[in-house]
């Protein structure tokens, strides 16, 4: 028997396409926001809110990733923006190849911002770059404040953490400061925004930060 050195990156195929996408987005001047999060945390509501706030000065598109259905695409399509739905057919995350395929259905040259709503999951999407400019993760109060401890990798890979549904804080035994402390421990560079996509609380701060740091008008 012979041992043969291989030393080949298993994520290589995804990373290569992601790198191409990053260059492509950069050349077209499109800011791409990869939105990760748990199912039901409010990813679609958050994107909806962003479209309403930024849509007057920016051309926005969305790539929606779900295991099945057109529910989210139909919802966002009502805002009059281009939306492409990817059904992953059972897969737990979006990969760069899926995004590249989806881009064939959207005119990226006419966009300033592209949101990519990933499949609701805190594990798999963490390791798959989509060539994004900015990666955020959204969680919500009813899920509990212990998630950073349980899913450290995803928190380490993001630029920002959004805690949604702070309007229901009183109904839950949830410590925002404990959550924030855990996030800071795993990722001291990530920005943190507690928000409510229902009342709008905190969202202005997020938009302000986004505009200032990513040159969005």
């Amino acid at each position: 028997m012979v041992r043969v050195p291989v030393l080949k990156n298993i994520m290589g195929a995804n990373d290569t396409i992601a790198k191409e996408l990053k260059e492509f987005f950069s050349n077209k001047g499109v800011k791409v926001i990869n939105v990760l999060g748990t199912p039901g945390a409010g990813k679609t509501s958050f994107i909806e809110w962003n479209i309403k706030q930024l849509g007057d000065k920016n051309r926005i598109g969305v790539v929606e990733g779900d295991v099945a259905s057109q529910v989210d695409a139909d919802r966002l399509g009502k805002l009059g923006i281009p939306v492409v739905q990817i059904n992953t057919g059972g897969s737990c995350h979006l990969n760069a190849l899926m995004v590249r395929e989806a881009l064939k259905l959207i005119d990226i040259t006419n966009l300033d911002i592209l949101f990519i709503e990933n499949v609701g999951n805190l594990i798999c999407p963490a390791n798959f770059s989509l060539g994004e400019t900015l990666r955020i993760v959204i969680l919500s109060v009813p899920e509990g404040d212990d998630k950073p401890k349980k899913y450290p990798v995803v928190f380490h890979t993001v630029d920002g953490v959004i805690l949604n549904k702070i309007d229901v804080l009183e109904a839950f035994d949830y410590s925002v400061s404990a959550f924030q402390k855990e996030v800071e421990k795993i990722n001291p560079n990530a920005v943190f925004f507690p928000v409510s996509c229902k009342s709008g609380e905190g969202l202005i701060d997020w938009i302000k930060w986004l505009k200032e740091n990513y040159f969005i008008s």
Binding site: M1, V2, R3, V4, P5, V6, L7, K8, N9, I10
Partner: peptide
């Protein structure tokens, strides 16, 4: 807090043993 990861994010085939 200004740290750089040197190891722990890689994922590759190191080697294979064949006949």
């Amino acid at each position: 807090k200004d740290l750089k990861v040197l190891q722990g994010e890689e994922f590759f085939i190191d080697n294979i043993e064949v006949i």
